[in-house]
Design a protein around this nucleic acid. Structure first.
Lengths: 339, 339
DNA sequence: TCCGTTCACTAGACCGGTTTATCATTGCCG
DNA sequence: CGGCAATGATAAACCGGTCTAGTGAACGGA
């Protein structure tokens, strides 16, 4: 037989299509005995729901969308995305929710995809990442009235749920750690300035510097690429009154920065301490290994997925879910300053 | 108005639903004038097709499935996947084909997903990666009669298309390069032995060793993790008659191996040459930077997507598409042996 | 005994497209 | 001028589910 349908089940079980639908979806309207019989028949003929038919009735698409707005070619080095994806994926698949993935060039294209996915009913919800300062996507998802979760919030984003980590606290802990080691000239090689998390980190550094009276604490913006991370490092180390410690917003840039230091004959950690604001095998494989602000990115993805499912279950109830604050793991790339 | 449908278009254009369908799909049955009018109305009310409704009629789902069978937690360090994904994605999205992604634990789970996606009509085709030696998935996709493309073929896999690179030639070029530099004791830290590409590389090494009369050319299998890559390196360097050159099946393992060598006081490249069988920023960031067999993984993904679309267009016509052979890029991690 | 409820189930509309069978016009050809 | 084919369009069936209104039977209370 070609692809069994509920009509086939109905015929073989001697009931109507409606009864089958009720039975299969575990809703009242059929007796326990009939339900059992229907389920047995469905099992026998190996029935599977046709996702399109379900979605047509206005029901769930059982899929969630994720769009990453980065030039596709540059993607793929950052371990962060892949780990986040794994976490999201693992949690969604436990509920048989598929992930629709798309990589686009910019936010404008991303918004276009959102519109078409929603109007084509391909997804039940959206996961937004890399939140910008005045992010146009927030207005779009609110207008489209589709459940959404922002990864990396919190912030002023209306009635959209978010999952976030306390970047500020993490940055403060790193700066304080360096201060205790005697560092006073601390630099920050950050990501794109339009990202909210970049801003939060830069601001935290500024505040800590003011409080601890550290001169010359500054943030240099990059596009997160290893090339710009290296360039920023070169600039910092070549200038007068060079920093004795640098905090990088990603492990990739930290590794690139470490390479530049070696190249320029600046020894790590004796002449320069390095902290990476993101941990991965990468940070552990270098020599010296990198002190890093570490968090479980996989788990972060899991939590984002859970938040998504909560919003799907009840779209009116949104919440900001704060996750584990990245904590400092001291490795070989940091040491006290020489006096 | 709530979500415009073709019925709305039909009403406003004063024609039937059928005529609208013909017009929107560019098929004969309507006059040019009517067609233009219908398209204009559709544009006006911003109509978008409802993907589920289309799929229900037995038409395309406009989506392709990709399942990665690896423990989700370990994924994400390997730059290979992310770059492949980018390439696939870029090409698919140019044709408005979505990518259904799922990460599972093992091949058995992967096969289950295939079955449900196909019977739920979620995807039009499947992309298979990490082909194993007697891969059960081949039989499954043939039985399910769904278009599929194997990434990393070629080989005995019936009527399924494939996209592959010549691992053998690449491995031979690496071995010959090392031989020219004077190396005679060459080791290979490989991936999982059940993968076809692992086997091809190991066999190529064996053959080259026989031809060039290199003693002790051996392959050590790992699971591709940095931990096992490091362990294998440790074992190789600790043993008697240690190799003067090691070829690693991934850049991640090569970096880990480099770390072990430094740890053990074996200088690279003077006492040990290292070649990575896969290139990425990772290989370029280390010190010394790694000589690598490089290929454009992004492009590889694009080609796989193109192969997929070709099979979708005509499922009877399968072909094995050979792509660029990885070519050796000499960097700092290889040098002549000291005599 | 009669009426009102509840329960189990059925029939059929419906979702938004595609496709087929049908029909009316028009045009062409001998 | 008659017959036939091609063209342009329509109505309705269909895809595989969900869901609502309705039906018949059993049951309980007064």
């Amino acid at each position: 037989m070609q692809r069994p349908t509920i009509a086939d089940i109905a015929r073989r079980a001697g009931v109507s299509k409606g009864a089958v639908s009720f039975a299969l979806n575990g809703r009242p309207g059929v007796s326990a005995a009939t339900r059992a019989r229907i389920l047995r028949v469905a099992e026998e003929i190996n029935w599977r729901p046709h996702s399109a038919a379900r979605a047509l009735g206005g029901a769930r698409a059982d899929a969630v969308g994720l769009v990453i707005a980065r030039p596709a070619r540059t993607l793929g080095v950052e371990p962060f995305f892949a780990r986040l994806l794994s976490g999201l994926q693992a949690e969604f698949s436990s509920q048989s929710i598929a992930l629709h993935l798309m990589i686009v060039e910019d936010t404008q294209a991303e918004i276009e995809i959102y519109r078409s996915w929603v109007s084509e009913r391909r997804v039940d919800g959206l996961v937004l990442i890399d939140l910008k300062v005045r992010d146009p996507r927030i207005a779009v998802v609110e207008q489209l009235k589709i459940p959404a979760v922002v990864v990396g919030g919190p912030g002023r984003h209306g009635r959209v749920s978010s999952v976030w980590a306390d970047d500020r606290a993490a940055m403060l802990s790193a700066v304080e750690y360096l201060a205790v080691l005697g560092h006073t000239r601390i630099a920050h090689v950050s990501g794109l300035p339009e990202f909210q998390h970049t801003q939060r980190r830069s601001r935290a550094l500024r505040d800590a510097a003011a409080r601890l009276t550290l001169p010359r604490a500054r943030s240099l913006h990059t596009d997160f690429s290893d090339a710009q991370g290296a360039a920023a490092t070169r600039k910092l180390l070549a200038g007068a009154g060079r920093p004795t410690a640098i905090i990088y917003d990603s492990d990739l840039m930290a590794v690139a920065g470490l390479g530049v230091a070696l190249e320029m004959g600046v020894t790590v950690p004796h002449e320069l301490s390095i902290i990476s604001f993101d941990d991965s095998v990468l940070a552990q494989l270098t020599h010296p290994s990198l002190t890093a602000l570490s968090r479980d990115t996989y788990r972060f993805g899991v939590q984002a997925a859970q938040a998504m499912m909560a919003v799907l279950a009840d779209p009116t109830k949104t919440k900001n879910h704060k996750t584990e604050t990245p904590r400092l793991i001291a490795r070989e790339s940091t040491s006290p300053t020489r006096n």
